[in-house]
Design a binder for these strands. Structure first.
Lengths: 217, 217
DNA sequence: ACCTGAACACCGTTCAAGT
DNA sequence: ACCTGAACACCGTTCAAGT
Protein backbone atom coordinates (compact mmCIF):
# COMPACT_ATOMS: atom_id res chain seq x y z
CA UNK A 1 0.00 0.00 0.00
CA UNK A 2 1.46 3.29 -1.08
CA UNK A 3 1.63 6.27 1.18
CA UNK A 4 -0.70 8.24 -1.04
CA UNK A 5 -3.33 5.59 -0.55
CA UNK A 6 -3.60 6.53 3.07
CA UNK A 7 -4.12 10.20 2.60
CA UNK A 8 -7.19 12.23 1.78
CA UNK A 9 -7.56 12.81 -1.94
CA UNK A 10 -8.01 16.53 -1.93
CA UNK A 11 -5.61 19.24 -0.94
CA UNK A 12 -6.51 20.92 2.36
CA UNK A 13 -6.28 24.27 0.64
CA UNK A 14 -9.73 23.80 -0.79
CA UNK A 15 -11.86 24.94 2.10
CA UNK A 16 -14.98 23.10 1.11
CA UNK A 17 -13.13 19.82 0.87
CA UNK A 18 -11.52 20.42 4.20
CA UNK A 19 -14.90 20.91 5.81
CA UNK A 20 -16.21 17.78 4.13
CA UNK A 21 -13.29 15.69 5.31
CA UNK A 22 -13.93 17.04 8.75
CA UNK A 23 -17.61 16.13 8.59
CA UNK A 24 -16.79 12.62 7.45
CA UNK A 25 -14.29 12.12 10.24
CA UNK A 26 -16.80 13.35 12.78
CA UNK A 27 -19.37 10.95 11.42
CA UNK A 28 -16.85 8.13 11.63
CA UNK A 29 -16.08 8.95 15.25
CA UNK A 30 -19.78 9.03 16.04
CA UNK A 31 -20.38 5.68 14.46
CA UNK A 32 -17.45 4.09 16.28
CA UNK A 33 -18.39 5.54 19.65
CA UNK A 34 -22.13 5.01 19.49
CA UNK A 35 -22.45 1.88 17.38
CA UNK A 36 -19.11 0.11 17.62
CA UNK A 37 -16.69 -1.42 15.16
CA UNK A 38 -19.26 -3.76 13.65
CA UNK A 39 -21.36 -0.82 12.44
CA UNK A 40 -18.36 1.04 11.10
CA UNK A 41 -19.10 0.52 7.41
CA UNK A 42 -18.52 2.93 4.55
CA UNK A 43 -22.23 3.17 3.88
CA UNK A 44 -23.10 3.87 7.50
CA UNK A 45 -20.44 6.57 7.85
CA UNK A 46 -21.63 8.24 4.66
CA UNK A 47 -25.22 8.06 5.89
CA UNK A 48 -24.35 9.68 9.21
CA UNK A 49 -22.29 12.32 7.42
CA UNK A 50 -25.31 13.02 5.22
CA UNK A 51 -23.67 12.18 1.90
CA UNK A 52 -23.61 9.23 -0.48
CA UNK A 53 -21.02 6.47 -0.37
CA UNK A 54 -19.73 7.67 -3.69
CA UNK A 55 -18.96 11.07 -2.22
CA UNK A 56 -17.17 9.52 0.70
CA UNK A 57 -14.88 7.81 -1.77
CA UNK A 58 -14.14 11.15 -3.36
CA UNK A 59 -12.46 12.24 -0.15
CA UNK A 60 -10.89 8.97 0.94
CA UNK A 61 -9.45 6.43 -1.50
CA UNK A 62 -10.62 3.56 0.68
CA UNK A 63 -11.93 2.75 4.11
CA UNK A 64 -8.48 2.02 5.42
CA UNK A 65 -7.52 5.63 4.68
CA UNK A 66 -10.48 6.83 6.69
CA UNK A 67 -9.45 4.72 9.65
CA UNK A 68 -5.88 5.87 9.24
CA UNK A 69 -7.00 9.49 9.41
CA UNK A 70 -8.71 8.85 12.73
CA UNK A 71 -5.66 7.10 14.10
CA UNK A 72 -3.45 9.90 12.87
CA UNK A 73 -5.53 12.41 14.80
CA UNK A 74 -5.38 10.45 18.01
CA UNK A 75 -1.66 9.95 17.63
CA UNK A 76 -1.05 13.62 16.96
CA UNK A 77 -2.92 14.52 20.12
CA UNK A 78 -0.94 11.94 22.05
CA UNK A 79 2.39 13.22 20.75
CA UNK A 80 1.51 16.68 21.98
CA UNK A 81 0.32 15.41 25.33
CA UNK A 82 3.49 13.40 25.90
CA UNK A 83 5.69 16.30 24.89
CA UNK A 84 3.76 18.56 27.22
CA UNK A 85 4.21 16.19 30.15
CA UNK A 86 7.91 15.81 29.45
CA UNK A 87 8.34 19.54 29.30
CA UNK A 88 6.19 20.16 32.38
CA UNK A 89 8.08 17.68 34.50
CA UNK A 90 11.59 18.74 33.53
CA UNK A 91 12.36 19.86 37.04
CA UNK A 92 10.55 17.14 38.92
CA UNK A 93 11.84 13.81 40.11
CA UNK A 94 11.85 10.71 37.95
CA UNK A 95 8.99 9.30 40.01
CA UNK A 96 6.88 12.39 39.58
CA UNK A 97 7.48 12.50 35.85
CA UNK A 98 6.72 8.83 35.31
CA UNK A 99 3.65 9.19 37.45
CA UNK A 100 2.38 11.90 35.14
CA UNK A 101 3.12 9.74 32.13
CA UNK A 102 1.24 6.80 33.62
CA UNK A 103 -1.71 9.08 34.33
CA UNK A 104 -1.61 10.28 30.75
CA UNK A 105 -1.67 6.75 29.41
CA UNK A 106 -4.72 5.94 31.49
CA UNK A 107 -6.62 9.11 30.72
CA UNK A 108 -5.87 8.86 27.02
CA UNK A 109 -7.45 5.43 26.91
CA UNK A 110 -10.38 6.19 29.17
CA UNK A 111 -11.10 9.66 27.85
CA UNK A 112 -13.14 8.22 25.02
CA UNK A 113 -13.26 4.54 25.79
CA UNK A 114 -15.18 3.27 22.80
CA UNK A 115 -13.19 5.21 20.28
CA UNK A 116 -9.81 4.44 21.78
CA UNK A 117 -10.48 0.70 21.93
CA UNK A 118 -11.78 0.53 18.41
CA UNK A 119 -8.82 2.43 17.04
CA UNK A 120 -6.38 0.31 19.05
CA UNK A 121 -7.69 -2.78 17.35
CA UNK A 122 -7.71 -1.27 13.90
CA UNK A 123 -4.24 0.11 14.39
CA UNK A 124 -2.89 -3.36 14.89
CA UNK A 125 -4.72 -4.88 12.00
CA UNK A 126 -3.66 -2.54 9.29
CA UNK A 127 -0.26 -1.78 7.81
CA UNK A 128 -0.27 1.88 8.64
CA UNK A 129 2.04 3.75 6.37
CA UNK A 130 4.92 5.96 7.20
CA UNK A 131 3.05 8.92 8.51
CA UNK A 132 1.72 7.05 11.47
CA UNK A 133 5.08 5.41 11.98
CA UNK A 134 6.40 8.96 12.26
CA UNK A 135 4.05 9.72 15.13
CA UNK A 136 5.31 6.72 16.98
CA UNK A 137 8.84 7.86 16.42
CA UNK A 138 7.93 11.28 17.76
CA UNK A 139 6.46 9.82 20.91
CA UNK A 140 9.50 7.62 21.34
CA UNK A 141 11.73 10.65 20.93
CA UNK A 142 9.82 12.62 23.53
CA UNK A 143 10.14 9.68 25.89
CA UNK A 144 13.81 9.44 25.11
CA UNK A 145 14.12 13.12 26.00
CA UNK A 146 12.51 12.40 29.32
CA UNK A 147 14.98 9.61 30.00
CA UNK A 148 17.90 11.84 29.09
CA UNK A 149 16.92 14.23 31.84
CA UNK A 150 17.22 11.49 34.42
CA UNK A 151 20.09 9.71 32.76
CA UNK A 152 22.42 9.99 35.72
CA UNK A 153 20.16 7.87 37.83
CA UNK A 154 19.52 5.14 35.27
CA UNK A 155 21.58 1.95 35.13
CA UNK A 156 20.83 1.59 31.43
CA UNK A 157 22.92 1.65 28.33
CA UNK A 158 20.30 1.67 25.55
CA UNK A 159 17.90 4.51 26.25
CA UNK A 160 16.20 4.25 22.86
CA UNK A 161 15.13 0.68 23.47
CA UNK A 162 14.14 1.64 26.98
CA UNK A 163 11.91 4.46 25.71
CA UNK A 164 10.24 2.11 23.25
CA UNK A 165 9.77 -0.57 25.91
CA UNK A 166 8.23 1.81 28.40
CA UNK A 167 5.68 2.95 25.87
CA UNK A 168 4.81 -0.60 24.90
CA UNK A 169 4.45 -1.62 28.53
CA UNK A 170 2.26 1.30 29.54
CA UNK A 171 0.08 0.94 26.53
CA UNK A 172 -0.36 -2.82 26.88
CA UNK A 173 -1.30 -2.61 30.55
CA UNK A 174 -3.84 0.12 29.98
CA UNK A 175 -5.35 -1.59 26.96
CA UNK A 176 -5.58 -4.92 28.73
CA UNK A 177 -7.43 -3.22 31.53
CA UNK A 178 -9.71 -1.37 29.14
CA UNK A 179 -10.56 -4.61 27.33
CA UNK A 180 -11.91 -6.05 30.54
CA UNK A 181 -13.56 -3.30 32.47
CA UNK A 182 -14.74 0.22 32.52
CA UNK A 183 -13.94 2.45 34.26
CA UNK A 184 -10.28 1.76 34.96
CA UNK A 185 -9.30 -0.53 37.81
CA UNK A 186 -8.51 1.59 40.84
CA UNK A 187 -4.92 0.40 41.11
CA UNK A 188 -4.13 0.57 37.40
CA UNK A 189 -2.19 3.78 37.32
CA UNK A 190 -0.10 2.69 40.25
CA UNK A 191 0.68 -0.66 38.67
CA UNK A 192 1.74 1.02 35.45
CA UNK A 193 3.99 3.30 37.44
CA UNK A 194 5.50 0.29 39.19
CA UNK A 195 6.21 -1.39 35.87
CA UNK A 196 7.88 1.70 34.42
CA UNK A 197 9.91 2.48 37.51
CA UNK A 198 10.97 -1.11 37.92
CA UNK A 199 12.17 -1.37 34.34
CA UNK A 200 14.20 1.80 34.65
CA UNK A 201 15.66 1.40 38.09
CA UNK A 202 16.47 -2.28 38.26
CA UNK A 203 20.23 -2.46 38.73
CA UNK A 204 21.81 -4.26 35.82
CA UNK A 205 23.69 -6.53 38.21
CA UNK A 206 20.43 -7.82 39.55
CA UNK A 207 19.94 -9.96 36.55
CA UNK A 208 23.42 -10.69 35.36
CA UNK A 209 24.10 -13.92 37.22
CA UNK A 210 26.90 -12.36 39.22
CA UNK A 211 27.80 -12.96 42.83
CA UNK A 212 26.61 -9.46 43.71
CA UNK A 213 23.19 -10.47 42.52
CA UNK A 214 21.35 -9.83 45.67
CA UNK A 215 23.15 -6.86 46.95
CA UNK A 216 20.59 -4.35 45.73
CA UNK A 217 17.21 -5.93 46.04
CA UNK B 1 -22.30 -15.06 20.98
CA UNK B 2 -23.05 -18.21 22.94
CA UNK B 3 -20.40 -20.59 24.09
CA UNK B 4 -21.76 -23.36 21.93
CA UNK B 5 -21.19 -21.16 18.90
CA UNK B 6 -17.48 -21.41 19.41
CA UNK B 7 -17.24 -25.14 19.59
CA UNK B 8 -17.09 -27.79 16.92
CA UNK B 9 -20.52 -29.15 16.10
CA UNK B 10 -19.77 -32.82 16.45
CA UNK B 11 -18.83 -34.83 19.46
CA UNK B 12 -15.20 -35.94 19.44
CA UNK B 13 -16.31 -39.48 20.09
CA UNK B 14 -17.11 -39.92 16.42
CA UNK B 15 -13.71 -40.77 15.07
CA UNK B 16 -14.36 -39.75 11.51
CA UNK B 17 -15.51 -36.32 12.60
CA UNK B 18 -12.51 -35.95 14.80
CA UNK B 19 -10.21 -36.67 11.89
CA UNK B 20 -12.09 -34.22 9.72
CA UNK B 21 -11.88 -31.47 12.32
CA UNK B 22 -8.19 -32.19 12.53
CA UNK B 23 -7.76 -31.96 8.77
CA UNK B 24 -9.61 -28.66 8.65
CA UNK B 25 -7.50 -27.20 11.42
CA UNK B 26 -4.34 -28.30 9.67
CA UNK B 27 -5.53 -26.69 6.48
CA UNK B 28 -6.31 -23.51 8.38
CA UNK B 29 -2.82 -23.43 9.88
CA UNK B 30 -1.31 -23.98 6.46
CA UNK B 31 -3.27 -21.16 4.93
CA UNK B 32 -2.37 -18.77 7.74
CA UNK B 33 1.31 -19.64 7.70
CA UNK B 34 1.80 -19.80 3.95
CA UNK B 35 -0.69 -17.26 2.63
CA UNK B 36 -1.42 -14.94 5.54
CA UNK B 37 -4.53 -13.55 7.17
CA UNK B 38 -5.87 -12.04 3.95
CA UNK B 39 -6.12 -15.46 2.32
CA UNK B 40 -7.71 -17.01 5.37
CA UNK B 41 -11.21 -17.39 3.95
CA UNK B 42 -13.67 -20.19 4.53
CA UNK B 43 -13.55 -21.17 0.89
CA UNK B 44 -9.77 -21.28 0.79
CA UNK B 45 -9.52 -23.37 3.95
CA UNK B 46 -12.07 -25.81 2.61
CA UNK B 47 -10.21 -26.01 -0.67
CA UNK B 48 -6.89 -26.75 1.03
CA UNK B 49 -8.61 -29.30 3.26
CA UNK B 50 -10.01 -30.93 0.15
CA UNK B 51 -13.68 -30.51 1.01
CA UNK B 52 -16.49 -28.16 0.09
CA UNK B 53 -17.36 -25.02 2.02
CA UNK B 54 -20.62 -26.63 2.97
CA UNK B 55 -18.79 -29.48 4.66
CA UNK B 56 -16.58 -27.08 6.55
CA UNK B 57 -19.70 -25.54 8.01
CA UNK B 58 -20.82 -28.94 9.15
CA UNK B 59 -17.87 -29.09 11.50
CA UNK B 60 -17.68 -25.44 12.53
CA UNK B 61 -20.75 -23.25 12.99
CA UNK B 62 -18.88 -20.24 11.64
CA UNK B 63 -15.46 -18.99 10.77
CA UNK B 64 -15.01 -17.43 14.15
CA UNK B 65 -15.32 -20.90 15.70
CA UNK B 66 -12.57 -22.17 13.43
CA UNK B 67 -10.27 -19.35 14.47
CA UNK B 68 -11.19 -19.94 18.10
CA UNK B 69 -10.22 -23.59 17.77
CA UNK B 70 -6.77 -22.60 16.53
CA UNK B 71 -6.34 -20.11 19.36
CA UNK B 72 -7.51 -22.69 21.86
CA UNK B 73 -4.81 -25.08 20.68
CA UNK B 74 -2.07 -22.51 20.98
CA UNK B 75 -3.27 -21.48 24.39
CA UNK B 76 -3.45 -25.05 25.61
CA UNK B 77 0.13 -25.60 24.53
CA UNK B 78 1.16 -22.39 26.24
CA UNK B 79 -0.55 -23.33 29.48
CA UNK B 80 1.38 -26.57 29.55
CA UNK B 81 4.64 -24.86 28.70
CA UNK B 82 4.24 -22.27 31.44
CA UNK B 83 3.27 -24.91 33.98
CA UNK B 84 6.30 -26.95 32.98
CA UNK B 85 8.65 -24.01 33.41
CA UNK B 86 7.15 -23.15 36.78
CA UNK B 87 7.54 -26.71 37.94
CA UNK B 88 11.05 -27.06 36.50
CA UNK B 89 12.29 -23.92 38.18
CA UNK B 90 10.81 -24.55 41.61
CA UNK B 91 14.24 -24.80 43.18
CA UNK B 92 15.98 -22.09 41.21
CA UNK B 93 16.31 -18.42 41.95
CA UNK B 94 13.72 -15.87 40.99
CA UNK B 95 16.05 -14.59 38.28
CA UNK B 96 16.58 -18.01 36.80
CA UNK B 97 12.86 -18.75 36.78
CA UNK B 98 11.89 -15.45 35.21
CA UNK B 99 14.64 -15.88 32.70
CA UNK B 100 13.13 -19.18 31.63
CA UNK B 101 9.71 -17.58 31.39
CA UNK B 102 11.04 -14.75 29.24
CA UNK B 103 12.70 -17.29 26.98
CA UNK B 104 9.44 -19.16 26.71
CA UNK B 105 7.54 -16.02 25.71
CA UNK B 106 10.05 -15.33 22.95
CA UNK B 107 10.22 -18.86 21.64
CA UNK B 108 6.47 -19.25 21.69
CA UNK B 109 6.10 -16.21 19.44
CA UNK B 110 8.98 -16.97 17.15
CA UNK B 111 8.44 -20.71 16.97
CA UNK B 112 5.87 -20.24 14.21
CA UNK B 113 6.02 -16.54 13.48
CA UNK B 114 3.33 -16.25 10.86
CA UNK B 115 0.81 -18.31 12.76
CA UNK B 116 1.46 -16.69 16.11
CA UNK B 117 1.11 -13.16 14.74
CA UNK B 118 -2.06 -13.94 12.85
CA UNK B 119 -3.66 -15.54 15.88
CA UNK B 120 -2.56 -12.66 18.12
CA UNK B 121 -4.45 -10.27 15.96
CA UNK B 122 -7.52 -12.42 15.67
CA UNK B 123 -7.53 -13.07 19.37
CA UNK B 124 -7.90 -9.38 20.06
CA UNK B 125 -10.56 -8.78 17.49
CA UNK B 126 -12.99 -11.43 18.54
CA UNK B 127 -14.97 -11.88 21.71
CA UNK B 128 -13.56 -15.25 22.59
CA UNK B 129 -15.92 -17.12 24.80
CA UNK B 130 -15.34 -18.59 28.18
CA UNK B 131 -13.22 -21.52 27.23
CA UNK B 132 -10.39 -19.34 26.03
CA UNK B 133 -10.84 -17.10 29.03
CA UNK B 134 -10.27 -20.25 31.07
CA UNK B 135 -6.89 -20.80 29.44
CA UNK B 136 -5.85 -17.31 30.35
CA UNK B 137 -6.92 -17.93 33.89
CA UNK B 138 -4.89 -21.13 33.94
CA UNK B 139 -1.78 -19.33 32.74
CA UNK B 140 -2.34 -16.62 35.31
CA UNK B 141 -2.70 -19.24 37.99
CA UNK B 142 0.53 -20.94 37.00
CA UNK B 143 2.24 -17.59 37.11
CA UNK B 144 0.72 -16.90 40.47
CA UNK B 145 2.12 -20.22 41.66
CA UNK B 146 5.54 -19.13 40.51
CA UNK B 147 5.23 -15.89 42.45
CA UNK B 148 4.13 -17.73 45.55
CA UNK B 149 7.38 -19.66 45.57
CA UNK B 150 9.36 -16.44 45.74
CA UNK B 151 6.88 -14.58 47.87
CA UNK B 152 9.30 -13.86 50.69
CA UNK B 153 11.45 -11.77 48.42
CA UNK B 154 8.65 -9.77 46.81
CA UNK B 155 7.58 -6.38 48.13
CA UNK B 156 4.10 -6.89 46.71
CA UNK B 157 0.69 -7.23 48.22
CA UNK B 158 -1.45 -8.25 45.25
CA UNK B 159 0.18 -11.25 43.60
CA UNK B 160 -2.79 -11.94 41.35
CA UNK B 161 -2.58 -8.57 39.70
CA UNK B 162 1.17 -8.95 39.52
CA UNK B 163 0.86 -12.29 37.73
CA UNK B 164 -1.56 -10.80 35.22
CA UNK B 165 0.63 -7.76 34.70
CA UNK B 166 3.77 -9.82 34.10
CA UNK B 167 2.02 -11.85 31.44
CA UNK B 168 0.68 -8.76 29.73
CA UNK B 169 4.08 -7.11 29.78
CA UNK B 170 5.99 -10.09 28.42
CA UNK B 171 3.46 -10.71 25.73
CA UNK B 172 3.27 -7.08 24.62
CA UNK B 173 7.03 -6.71 24.38
CA UNK B 174 7.45 -9.88 22.38
CA UNK B 175 4.55 -9.09 20.07
CA UNK B 176 5.76 -5.55 19.47
CA UNK B 177 9.12 -6.93 18.50
CA UNK B 178 7.57 -9.59 16.26
CA UNK B 179 5.45 -6.97 14.50
CA UNK B 180 8.59 -5.16 13.45
CA UNK B 181 11.25 -7.70 12.73
CA UNK B 182 12.13 -11.29 12.29
CA UNK B 183 14.01 -12.94 13.81
CA UNK B 184 13.80 -11.53 17.31
CA UNK B 185 15.96 -8.57 18.28
CA UNK B 186 19.11 -9.87 19.98
CA UNK B 187 18.43 -8.06 23.25
CA UNK B 188 14.72 -8.85 23.42
CA UNK B 189 14.80 -11.65 25.93
CA UNK B 190 17.03 -9.68 28.22
CA UNK B 191 14.78 -6.62 28.03
CA UNK B 192 11.73 -8.71 28.85
CA UNK B 193 13.58 -10.13 31.82
CA UNK B 194 14.47 -6.62 32.97
CA UNK B 195 10.85 -5.56 32.75
CA UNK B 196 9.62 -8.55 34.75
CA UNK B 197 12.34 -8.35 37.38
CA UNK B 198 11.91 -4.63 37.74
CA UNK B 199 8.17 -4.90 38.25
CA UNK B 200 8.58 -7.55 40.89
CA UNK B 201 11.55 -6.23 42.81
CA UNK B 202 10.93 -2.52 42.87
CA UNK B 203 10.59 -1.63 46.55
CA UNK B 204 7.16 -0.22 47.22
CA UNK B 205 8.69 2.76 48.99
CA UNK B 206 10.47 3.74 45.82
CA UNK B 207 7.31 5.15 44.40
CA UNK B 208 5.35 6.22 47.39
CA UNK B 209 6.51 9.82 47.66
CA UNK B 210 8.19 9.18 50.99
CA UNK B 211 11.39 10.62 52.32
CA UNK B 212 13.02 7.20 52.09
CA UNK B 213 12.43 7.33 48.39
CA UNK B 214 15.96 6.98 47.27
CA UNK B 215 17.30 4.70 49.89
CA UNK B 216 16.98 1.58 47.73
CA UNK B 217 17.74 2.56 44.21
C1' DA C 1 -27.11 -39.84 5.59
C1' DC C 2 -23.75 -36.88 3.70
C1' DC C 3 -21.55 -33.76 0.38
C1' DT C 4 -21.66 -30.18 -3.06
C1' DG C 5 -21.60 -25.65 -4.83
C1' DA C 6 -24.88 -22.26 -6.54
C1' DA C 7 -27.43 -18.76 -4.19
C1' DC C 8 -28.12 -15.18 -0.69
C1' DA C 9 -26.91 -11.31 2.36
C1' DC C 10 -23.65 -7.96 3.17
C1' DC C 11 -19.58 -4.93 2.63
C1' DG C 12 -16.01 -2.28 0.01
C1' DT C 13 -15.60 0.11 -4.14
C1' DT C 14 -16.76 1.91 -8.84
C1' DC C 15 -18.96 4.38 -12.47
C1' DA C 16 -22.93 5.42 -15.65
C1' DA C 17 -26.48 8.47 -15.23
C1' DG C 18 -28.50 12.55 -13.33
C1' DT C 19 -28.23 17.44 -11.68
C1' DA D 1 -18.21 19.90 -12.18
C1' DC D 2 -20.20 17.19 -8.68
C1' DC D 3 -23.28 13.86 -6.47
C1' DT D 4 -25.98 9.68 -6.39
C1' DG D 5 -26.92 4.98 -5.73
C1' DA D 6 -27.32 0.81 -8.49
C1' DA D 7 -23.95 -2.51 -9.88
C1' DC D 8 -19.84 -5.36 -9.25
C1' DA D 9 -16.48 -8.28 -6.80
C1' DC D 10 -15.79 -10.79 -2.84
C1' DC D 11 -16.63 -13.16 1.58
C1' DG D 12 -19.43 -15.63 5.15
C1' DT D 13 -23.12 -18.71 5.35
C1' DT D 14 -27.13 -21.60 3.84
C1' DC D 15 -29.79 -25.08 1.63
C1' DA D 16 -31.90 -27.40 -2.50
C1' DA D 17 -30.28 -30.88 -5.23
C1' DG D 18 -27.37 -34.80 -6.06
C1' DT D 19 -25.04 -39.16 -4.51
Amino acid sequence: MKRSQLEPRKSPRQTRSEAMVEAILEAAVRVLEREGLAAFTATRVAEVAGISVGSLYQYFPNKHALTAALIRREQAALVQAVEAVVSDTKDLSLEAGLSRLAALAVSHQYGRPGLASALDHEERRLPLGKEIEAFRTAIRKAMRGFLDIHQARLPLQDLDSAAADLLIIARAMVEADADRREPAAPGLERRVLRALMGYLLLPTEAFTRSRSSRRFL
